[in-house]
Design a protein around this nucleic acid. Structure first.
Lengths: 394, 394
DNA sequence: GTAATTAGGTCGACTCGTAAATTAAATATG
DNA sequence: CATATTTAATTTACGAGTCGACCTAATTAC
């Protein structure tokens, strides 16, 4: 139970206004009032505070002189007022991204490192070291850094800031946040990479009003994320939505997690490529995961009429449909959004996803949830992790 | 977005105090302050309002004179200040329950009716008619009726008040609330019966502080319910948590829902009894579902060493474990609570549930969620539906 | 030039919750 | 038995919030 008092109201309305501005761009005070349902008086009070602090500022844009009356003066976030650093840790790669208060990525760099050989101490050193070095090039941003966000694949305990297990690391139960917190003296948010993507999608105007949706990310693995009641749901352990490791069938191909019959073992890039190589003459991939080019090649084979390739995608879609059916039965969200590199083949999957749902879902629930794909871009994780970090800004 | 203003604070703190009193019984003002984290001044202000309205009252109990100082005066809800009517609709049976403000059932009656032959109009008439007749015997309660709650098996659209599909009715997409709302001029809450049970459990002191748990009810079917972030989660369509119809395997025994391989088709009473009759000499059951006595007999056979019976329960437990593993992967709650008539055999299921989880769940998540049973009693649904209805009281 | 219109700001009334002071009602103590 | 002590509950003063009503500013329409 948390108590309600009057200062929390102001704080809540403040972030409400800030978030409204972040999502809906520069807005006149009247519009803010309409969107937040705050009275003009309150909007004026809060915005003048924010202007005084430099968080927002008036942008004099020759607003299309629509109608008469005093012209509205637009105000927008001042992107230069605060910055956040996003760190995305993948297998042998660290991506550092600098975001402004608006949530845009203003600088980015990629460092390669042997992430598998790290222990807790050297991981700490590596993260702090790389982040410091990166920030040195952007002293202005460094000065106004308000928070950090770390995205990592695998299972994450978001509440405690631990990576429970990640393909990027050989060690388990690793604290990812303490060293950075100490070094930069600001809050550090840790999140599963799929949660970052879900968060990024959630911040899009079209999705902001959808309080309940699930995101499924297909790529090197299969991840999931839930936005429930308008908030990222990360479960009691901070480790929810491991959709890829829900089961299609108790017996089945082996998954990267070691168990049999996970959705991921049918749908992830590595699974498709592995199974395809048993049927089709494909070049061996020397990496742990097939490359984007290799996957594009396989996808094109299916589009060009290769029956075994086609059947593999059909099966993947059907399995995905089964998994989604379980989500629909349990959560019944408004939408399921499929994204990730794997959407490159969404045209091949779509029909069989629907068929799988049809086959598995209790008929009365069929058709109540929209299934749709979301175009994938590489920097969604980055935008998401920065947005998540910026959540600490008030 | 909802506006925050100062009166909402008072409203929120008011219900906070009322709920605290409902759950933790009569309490002194100091204790209320401690539990709600409100200052003594605020507690005094709100409680004196509530006393003036008659919602709560001082109960002079010879409080064990522990220590010196001014003795605390306990205040508790005034059960006679408001009443709620709960209606539980099952196959050929309508159970009517009168609850006081405390949430206790003060009167109850059961009516039999041919629920399967009803159309929308005759259902409306039946519900209104039976409720009116029942209330006639309790004019005092009728006068202070604040809300109604309707519990029904099957798939429910709680937001809109529709029964999407129910074994109790032959018609689908039936509005269950409009007629009652019009007749009694007060809000009517509709809920799936398992959600009622989950709500009842959630109101227990021990569970109130657990904001994330799942409830699985085993009986004539297998139902599920989710308490997320401290609130009953009913999904965008108001139809979440159909745990029984998540899948164990794409091919498998036929479920009551018509699909193959649902968890329910292995675990529900009807499934166990059906499969047992194929292996063991058991009396045919003339009802659609085996009776409690018949199920007790089957359970006892397994306890007494009948190998085929034992194996059936083992399989049911394992399947349940698989299903729970999917819930853990997706939701990662703090606890999973198993209840319903089926817990009569929990001793037979427990080990194989754990084995099933172990087998299916990604190892890193094993052991993070407590699985426990909750003793079943017939009136949990009633208490839950009344508690749900009383949620409208402020 | 004046009226109409729309945006934004100011001020007073009201509400809320809290800290601190005060009152109430018991026990402990000598 | 009177008084100090202790704990519970209430009252008071105050700072913080929102809102409605009114006012001012800056345009366009005529």
């Amino acid at each position: 139970m948390k108590k309600s008092d009057t200062e929390q109201i102001r704080a809540a309305n403040r972030v409400d206004i800030i978030n409204t501005l972040r999502v809906f761009g520069p807005l006149a005070r009247v519009d803010i009032g309409q969107r937040t349902r705050l009275s003009p008086a309150t909007v004026t009070a809060i915005t003048s505070d924010l202007v005084a602090e430099g968080v927002i500022r008036e942008v004099q844009k020759p607003v299309s002189a629509t109608g008469r009356g005093r012209p509205r003066v637009l105000i927008g976030l001042n992107p230069d007022h605060a910055s956040a650093l996003g760190i995305k840790l993948s297998i042998n790669e660290i991506r550092l991204m600098l975001g402004d208060l608006q949530g845009n990525i203003v600088a980015e760099t990629v460092v390669t490192a042997d992430t598998q050989s790290l222990d807790q101490a050297s991981l700490n050193d590596l993260l702090v070291d790389q982040a410091s070095r990166f920030l040195e090039d952007y002293p202005d941003h460094a000065r106004r850094l308000v928070s950090l966000g770390v995205a990592i694949q695998g299972i994450v305990d978001a509440h405690r800031g631990y990576s429970v297990w990640s393909p990027a690391l050989s060690i388990k139960n690793v604290n990812m946040t303490a060293a950075l917190e100490a070094a930069f003296e600001c809050p550090v948010e840790l999140a599963n990479d799929t949660n970052c993507i879900a968060h990024a999608i959630h911040k899009h105007p079209e999705y902001l009003q959808k309080p309940d949706f699930a995101v499924i990310m297909i790529g090197y693995g299969v991840g999931g994320s839930l936005i429930l009641n308008g908030d990222l749901y990360s479960g009691h352990n901070g480790a929810a939505a491991e959709f890829g490791h829900t089961k299609y069938t108790p017996t089945g191909p082996t998954c990267a997690c070691g168990k049999a019959g996970c959705i991921e073992a049918y749908v992830a890039d590595y699974a498709l490529y592995r199974d395809a190589r048993a049927l089709i003459d494909l070049p061996e991939t020397d990496r742990r995961h097939p490359s984007e080019d290799e996957m594009r090649h396989l996808t094109q084979l299916a589009r060009d009429g290769s029956t075994p390739a086609r059947e593999l995608f059909d099966r993947a879609g059907r399995v995905l449909g089964f998994g989604i059916a379980n989500v629909l039965a349990l959560i019944s969200p408004e939408r399921v959004v499929v994204t990730g590199p794997g959407v490159r083949a969404y045209d091949l999957l779509e029909d069989s996803i629907q068929a799988g749902i049809q086959e598995a879902l209790i008929p009365e629930l069929v058709g109540r949830t929209e299934i749709q794909s979301y175009p994938w871009s590489e920097d969604m994780t980055g935008k998401g992790v920065i947005a998540l970090a910026l959540g600490h800004f008030r």
